[in-house]
Design a protein around this nucleic acid. Structure first.
Lengths: 175, 175
DNA sequence: TTAGCTGCAAACGTTTTGCACTCAC
DNA sequence: GTGAGTGCAAAACGTTTGCAGCTAA
């Protein structure tokens, strides 16, 4: 937990709160987060949240919509979208990959990783070096055969740090 | 061109030098790959390839289009798209993030990584374990401040391996 | 009561497709 | 010469928005 705190924005704090896998706890946390953010609790939002929180298939908006519609037949796809982005902005759920972005192409033929600046959106290549050679863990055997592993670092690039007048470029480790 | 240079504050300059000096080589390789795949070499394809190969800004299709148009004013955006996907299928370029995919949502509040099966498209969560704690390298200092690091493993999941009748789930390390 | 939320429909931006013409092989 | 590749226009797709009515606080 202390390591996590190094990285923490409210995301991690609320994430740790909700970590308990049982739904009532997560739902209670959801209510608390909504109250704190002065966001109204509605039936639709609860249903969407429960659907995503209790689903490990990484559903897309359409899948969430189809599933929630069984409970609320009148819900609309755009409400699902609005709710999903709201939940994300509250740190209650996350997205896989870069959402709402055009496809970007990469002509660098060497194996490398990416640093994505969340402020300006620029992506910089990072050549892998000894210090962070990534060992594929034994546990992957239980999931499948890995053909490639790519790390995406997210943060603020030097130029955006300068613009913010924040020179602190401290860094740590994550797991 | 030492490894160190890549990480110096002149990262971009040296990266561009590298690309420029390799261009003839890469172009020759491009021709060879096209010939092998029985894909025709056209002026448009060469221009698109050169643009992506000599550009480390991870351009989107529109940016490639605008740039190539200076050379071939009559080229169309859809040709650029078709060519980019062709180049990707030939393994000559890659895409950043999951291309041509809907946004997928993730209700798992714990810090975790993803295993993406390139056959069936399923994404599975992988809880980080001691064995693959990811140390953020010192060199990231030269790029910016990292707030998050996520690993995306790509490969074939157990079920798809079984369907292919390929039981080999060996794995190695990548850097 | 009332600001915030919803559903509808229509718009949006990116990407893909059908077609007739063109050009690399 | 022939079929793969191209440009055009129009469609398709996922997603977002404006608006009028509804509802949680």
């Amino acid at each position: 937990m202390s390591e996590q705190l190094l990285w923490s924005s409210h995301y991690y704090l609320s994430a740790m709160d909700t970590c308990a896998s049982n739904q009532p706890d997560r739902l209670r946390n959801f209510e608390a987060v909504c109250k704190r953010a002065r966001v109204r609790m509605t039936f639709q939002r609860m249903a969407v949240f429960q659907e995503v929180a209790g689903n490990d298939e990484h559903p897309d908006a359409e899948a969430v919509y189809l599933s929630v519609r069984r409970q609320i037949p009148t819900i609309s796809l755009d409400t699902v979208y609005r709710t999903l982005w709201l939940l994300k902005s509250l740190g209650l759920i996350s997205t896989v990959g870069a959402p709402r972005e055009k496809t970007r192409f990469d002509g660098n033929p060497a194996e490398h990783h990416h640093f994505l600046c969340t402020v300006c959106g620029r992506i910089q290549d990072m050549q892998p070096q000894g210090s962070y050679t990534l060992e594929i863990p034994e546990s992957v055997k239980d999931v499948g055969r890995v053909e490639r592993a790519r790390i995406e670092f997210q943060g603020t690039c030097l130029e955006c740090l300068k613009l913010k007048g924040d020179g602190d470029v401290s860094h740590g480790s994550t797991s």
